[in-house]
Design a protein around this nucleic acid. Sequence first.
RNA 1: GCGCUCAUGGCUCAGCUGGAUAGAGCAUCGGUUUGCGGUACCGAAGGUCACAGGUUCGAAUCCUGUUGGGCGUACCA
Length: 566
Amino acid sequence: MKLKEQINLYIEDALANASIKVENISVSEAGKPEFGDYQFNGIMPLAKTLKRNPREIAAEVVSCIDTSGLITKAEVAGPGFINLWLNDSWMSEAAGRMLADPRVGVEKKPYPIKVVIDYSGPNMAKEMHVGHLRSTIIGDTLSNLLSFLGDEVIRQNHIGDWGTQFGMLIAYLEEIGLETGSKNLKDLEQFYKSAKRRFDEDAAFADKAREYVVKIQSGDPHCLKLWKKFIDISLGHCEEIYDKLDVNLGREDVRAESFYNEKLPEVIKALEEKGHLQVSEGAKCVFLEGEEIPLIVQKGDGGYLYATTDLAALWFRAEALGAKRISYVVDARQAGHFKQVFRVAKESGLVGEDVLLEHIAFGTMMDKGGKPFKTRDGSTVKLVDLLDEAVIRAKEAIKAKEEYSPAELENLARIVGIGAVKYADLSIHRESNYIFDWEKMLSLEGNTSLYQQYAYARIMSIFRKYDGEIGQTIVVGNEIEHRLVLLLLRFSDVLERAAKDAAPHQITSYLYDVTTLFMRFYEQNPILREHVEESVRQSRLALSALTANVIRQGLSILGIGVVERL
RNA sequence: GCGCUCAUGGCUCAGCUGGAUAGAGCAUCGGUUUGCGGUACCGAAGGUCACAGGUUCGAAUCCUGUUGGGCGUACCA
């Protein structure tokens, strides 16, 4: 249910009845409880053109607002605000419908589109590090979100499986044998270093490595086989991480860099035909108006570049996959690159005008001192290590609480630990750099996943204790219930806006509000205590259930689990 | 040099198309319990929204400039 849209309709009617034209009819959430639930601020800008007192106009509109349904009261306030109060029984009914709905009141889009979301993108020659974490988590959340809202989401993992370093790596893999190789590949960093050492120390090996690069590219069966094996093993390790992270990214979503190889000459040809290509200093480039530096698509030696592959991928995604929105979840430092690539794709017609291209940029992960996140010795932190540490720390944080079997504790620690890492990342505005802090992340206080998982478990505990049928009727009976129901009814609006802005933190922030408000409600409104009237008890139980549903569904979109007991 | 981006209480962050007295959490100080999970809840204190102009009925938000930080700047990805 789209609450805001419904309120807008009332305002629209009132304005029509008052014969007043407003361009942008949209109410906003009231800043304070005394200002009601929603407010409409669209009157004041009119005052000047109409040469009338804004309060007078507002009063006229207010008198035309239908207060027999959703809205129960409308008032003029301040210089010409219109404050709106929503009707409790209308809200109660809406909340009841939401409770009965498995989709928690969120309708699917009537006109879904195909959306490609490009995220994670690890390099097969290197270990996945914390830099991949944000792309993976944010991309996965957006995919979950858009697909929940009804779009057809095509996840694309654009893995880096091509380049000169693979000659060296497969030569080394061949040398040490597949068996030892696949074991050693668990630590890619180490594997790479060993291969590099061989390359630097042994001229014969170096020659072979260079030879293998050429052989892979020319399709030599032996080298191709080795290369495929290498990629397979390396990708397997990434999948272990996806598994740990509980991210929906599988083999079927992988469309590697190498996939686009044969399309690269076609990209050049297409650009040439459109007359966009210029040769500058030996390289084939596209010069864009207003841009100082051209986009180079083919090197002087004939080799292709990152930009060429990206253009090929855009082309493929728009043409073959039929995407109408293509989103790249990539580090903010590449903003310039994408700006150029997108422009070239559009101007050359590789991608149609009706396709939305967006760079979902994110900032860098910092340590507590505000420096880029590194290990003590200054190397990049491996993602596996980070995730394992999260689980260990989560175990520490929860094990004192109750008696669990080792298996239960392991599972719980995984949900809590991984959830904390993800939530910490998603709860920050994605474009800003964020500070990685274990203590804060696994704290039960403040805007964390654990606080919400705890609240959820508490609600579950109420139901365990009650142990009976829970009604579906919610009756708003007091101020705090009114506020809680109102907030829950906004769920759909929040998801929609978060999808539009590609901003997961809007969801975390909302869930935090829900949880906080529920805690307050629960503190003030007894549910299971003896003196509580049965109908009130039922309503409060139903309200608790609805709250739990919203928390569970919201966290699920973020890829975070909940538990019955904590 | 040019371009992009950021600057909000001691710390970490919100602040939606400009809207009413700029909101949270942590830390600090104080309070709540015959305990529906106190790992909770309530309250207090704490901000010239980097600075200076401008636009507007109204600016943390838009425009210009200044200062300070981060990043990017043609054959890496």
